[in-house]
Design a protein around this nucleic acid. Structure first.
Lengths: 207, 207
DNA sequence: ATAATTGCCATACATTTGTATGTTAATTTA
DNA sequence: TAAATTAACATACAAATGTATGGCAATTAT
């Protein structure tokens, strides 16, 4: 059994996980101290020692950023879901987070990426299902054949992207839905980002 | 366009990516020097400068381990597939790597994990399909309801795991396949690991 | 009531780390 | 052929980093 963490220790562990997941590398003591407004690294040092003692992390002595999560993939981090996005017909996107999902450590999320929950089944032949959480990276240029999130008339869609001469095609893989063709200059159209990952909880689902 | 890397520069970049993907954090100059047998960190330093100049990485000055991949999710790393594993009826496992898959950087792979290609469709109601690459972590204890890889009579299977009093149940989610029940003491049965992730190439598939 | 834990700070120190500079040799490019 | 690039080395240095130690107030456990 794990010993309980204090509130501050939990905050620090959360920050640690957030950094590892977001930036990809653990922070230094100085990073953590700066974030929490501590004037001294030794404060963080001692918190880490306490957290390690309780078994949540493992440190490699003398190594910079040498902190590993003991919990590994068992640990889930809450992340806001920014909206719902239609794989079938367009759905309205929400201004604020509508929900939170516990994302496992395994699903490394590049910084600036965000999460959307997929509704609808137009991509079921691409094996993306209603209820799946898609990880969207807004910093990549879409290439032909990639699955993208786009805003079309104030609604968000998840479709496969194809660039033609003067238009853009957004294709569903489910033949029940027809391909959307947009002129490149169409004003209320914007590529939001590229789907770089799909997370689906491994917990039991109704068959 | 990216400038070409020399053979050594490519080796160093490959090692860098391997470390970032495997260990989760970039190596220090000393780490790289040690791995390649260099007596001096400055050698690595200069290689990194060259690699950065050619646009493959970005360095945060003065920061330890402050190396980021410019290529991000565009970069794919070859990983060996160790065998095929049956989601339907058991298949033979191969002693050596049978193939290689280009795994994207997004799919962070915990160390010691390995890849298996799924054959068969007994887990299609859990949305794991024939052809998918599963990332298997051999260091985790299986919990009820998790999807595991197990060896049964010299063949490997991917099934959902349930621990009962004296037996273990390996369930398919596809009603066409029946649940396998094994006594806990059955000699030729072993849990190989837990499926911690699924990778599926986002490239176009036949609909 | 006393001891232990928590939370924060300060100072000090040895390594680690990134960086700068210069040298040498082999190879490639102009 | 001359110049540039590649590849490796050595030395030096400032900053970053982890660590050790001690102090102090507040809270919690015994």
């Amino acid at each position: 059994m794990q010993k309980e963490l204090t509130a501050i220790q939990k905050d620090i562990l959360d920050f640690l996980i957030d950094q590892i997941k977001g930036k990809g590398i653990p922070p230094t003591l100085a990073d953590v101290a700066k974030h929490f407004g501590y004037k001294n690294r030794a404060t963080v040092q001692q918190h880490f020692q306490a957290i390690e003692k309780k078994g949540y992390i493992r440190k490699s002595p003398k190594l910079s950023r040498g902190i590993e999560l003991t919990l590994e993939d068992k640990y889930f981090v809450p992340r806001p879901i920014l909206g719902e996005v239609a794989a079938g017909n367009p759905l309205t996107i929400y201004p604020d987070a509508i929900d939170t999902v516990k994302l496992p450590t395994i699903a490394k999320m590049p910084q600036d990426s965000f999460l959307l929950r997929v509704k609808g089944d137009s991509l079921k032949d691409a094996y993306i299902f209603s209820g799946d959480i898609v990880i969207v990276n807004p910093n990549l240029e879409p290439k032909n054949g990639q699955i993208v999130v786009a805003i079309l008339n104030d609604a968000a869609v998840v479709k496969r992207f194809y660039k033609k001469r003067s238009e853009i095609e957004l294709a569903s893989e489910n033949p029940e839905y027809k391909t959307i063709v947009i002129d490149k200059k169409y004003p209320s159209f914007k590529i939001v980002g590229i789907v770089v990952g799909i997370y689906r909880s491994m917990e039991k689902r109704a068959g």
